[in-house]
């Protein structure tokens, strides 16, 4: 497909219109986390989230989560219209408790991972992923 300049600009405009401000966390995010944890306290160590600081392409952002001893890991894109990304479940025989996937981000926002550990406790981490128009590297 050969894009005309007008088309190209249309695309660029579409992409950029989404990046005015960092996306606010969707109000339902805390509810979803509370539902996952049953309202239990959440620690801040025990789960690692790997994601780029700046997305090369907001439509397909590689992320991975790793939580030794986790039975489930909930992943949320806090600023997406539909924040739920995935819940990874690990059986007792799972050798490693990590998973990777690619997600779509509507704009700059926090990606959140909450792990349910086998001892019943919970751990949470988050990382801001910037979605930018780029263009002027030195």
């Amino acid at each position: 497909m050969r894009l005309t300049r007008r088309d190209t600009f249309g695309l660029a405009l579409g992409a950029m219109a989404l990046t005015v401000l960092p996306f606010r966390a969707n109000a339902s995010v805390e509810d979803m986390i509370a539902e996952f944890t049953g309202g239990a306290d959440i620690g801040d160590s025990g789960v690692d989230l790997t994601a780029p600081e700046i997305a090369e392409n907001g439509n397909t952002v590689p992320i991975s989560v790793d939580a030794p001893g986790a039975s489930e890991i909930l992943v949320l894109a806090a600023g997406n219209p539909t924040p739920a990304v995935a819940t990874f479940a690990f059986g007792p025989l799972a050798g490693s408790r990590m998973a990777s996937t690619r997600i779509r981000l509507a704009g700059t926002q926090e990606v959140i991972a909450v792990a349910k550990l086998e001892d019943g406790s919970f751990a949470r981490t988050a990382k801001t992923v910037k979605v930018t128009i780029g263009g002027c590297g030195g």
Binding site: M16, A17, T19, V20, E53, I54, T128, K130, T132, I133, G134, G135, C136, G137, G138
Partner: peptide, 21 residues
């Protein structure tokens, strides 16, 4: 939007979110 986007690539207080330039 263009100016804000580029400005954040230079003046984001966290260097990992800067692109240089």
């Amino acid at each position: 939007i263009v100016l804000e986007d580029v400005a954040d690539n230079i003046f984001n207080p966290d260097p990992y979110y800067q692109q240089g330039g």
